[in-house]
Design a binder for these strands. Structure first.
Lengths: 221, 221
DNA sequence: CCAAGAGCTGAGAAGTCGCTGAGTCGGCGT
DNA sequence: ACGCCGACTCAGCGACTTCTCAGCTCTTGG
């Protein structure tokens, strides 16, 4: 459960525990992403208004990382618009504050029973495909073995296919926001990917945009 | 939030905090650019009248650095012209002082909800287009490869399309505010752009305004 | 019609960027 | 303990960018 209002968090936690759930609470978006990535929960209760990273962003980031735990969003607003937004981002259910406690429990049970949502779409770029759930990469129907770093870089590039991404953006997303080493690593890993993905197929999916960064051709090169 | 009037800044901060936002305040343009580049905010409230670097420049600089956090501009003026200016530079919303506090909160919520996926508008001038996010330039549907400097210059001209901009302004914005070399570079780079953008298409998007500077034709020449 | 100033141009020097091959380091399985 | 593999660092080279410079052309005002 992700909820920054301490009193509400506490009430709900006690109630859910009484109802037989094992509950863990974090109070901001960053911790939420971290916790949900590290442990396998049955379901996540996510407030929209959060410090550091709002609920929408948390959800987006989790899905981006391949975390498909069901999510129930909590919000203080009740416009029709907000609801569809939450669903668009991959939320599995939605409750407006103030909410009935019994309704919350019922919805959570339903989510857990239903199990996880469908798999994310496989990312495609021409004859290149990457399946975030299986962590598999194929080109022209042939599987390509990648190391974790190579995979992380390729996933990032494919999620931004068609865009020019800077080395800094890559370092912050694929490496660490606080990465402090030689930025040349990016070039090195681009090379590794090219050797595995492009060279054997006589293609060049990863273009260099000199002085700016790299771009994965939307059509796979 | 970027606001130099201490009393106003304080009032708004308190109000936003009560409304559930986590607020950080800086008082001048330089600090604004630094803070916004370093941290990932949900939304930026930006006053136009600021010490050191005015709101327009801050916005321009942020976009130039690839920071696409939604920005709501505050201004004391209310001419129609100012509003379109703000939008041209990539502001996402706009409020005139004095403003209703509830309106501010509502707009901020809307901006946050709209969130990340929103792309900046593609800049257009006739059949010329520049996409700041993808760092791509096209003319008549054909992609044009530019070096970073050429790209920077073209982006600047397109953000001021229709206006005459002086060489000094160009040097300060595209090069460095403290640039100290031969101002002839501008002419040289204008030439490069003309060779890539105009000559192959028999057009002349970039006009020379003798004794004043340059102007990018709003209709692309 | 001429002179002066503003802008244009081609060439080239200096600097920067990205690519690459080799090599170090640390963790992990055997 | 050993060897392997993945992650990363490093240095040099080749290519491209950036900027300067000097001569040229065009415009304008007298």
């Amino acid at each position: 459960m992700v909820e920054d209002e301490v009193r509400l968090a506490d009430t709900v936690r006690r109630g859910l525990t009484d109802a037989g759930f094992v509950v863990e609470v974090v109070h901001n978006g960053e911790d939420a992403v971290w916790a949900a990535s590290e442990s396998a929960y049955d379901v996540i209760v996510l407030d929209i208004m959060l410090p550091k990273l709002n609920g929408y962003k948390v959800l987006e980031e989790l899905r981006r990382r391949g975390v498909w735990t069901p999510v129930l969003m909590l919000t203080a607003k009740d416009g029709e618009h907000d609801q569809t937004d939450a669903f668009d981002l991959g939320a599995d259910d939605y409750l407006t504050k103030p909410f009935s406690f019994l309704v919350l429990v019922a919805r959570l049970r339903a989510l857990i029973r239903r199990g996880g949502p469908e798999r994310p779409v496989v990312l495609m770029a021409g004859d290149l495909s990457l399946d975030p759930a299986r962590k598999r990469v194929e080109r022209a129907g042939q599987e390509i073995a990648l190391t974790p770093r190579e995979y992380g870089l390729l996933e990032f590039l494919m999620r931004h296919r068609g865009d020019t991404v800077t080395k800094t953006e890559i370092l912050e997303s694929v490496w660490d926001p606080a990465f402090d080493g030689d930025p040349n690593v990016v070039e090195v890993y681009v090379r590794y990917l090219r050797l595995k993905l492009d060279a054997p197929f006589n293609r060049h999916a990863i273009e260099t945009v000199r002085g700016m960064g790299y771009r994965l051709a939307a059509d796979g090169g």
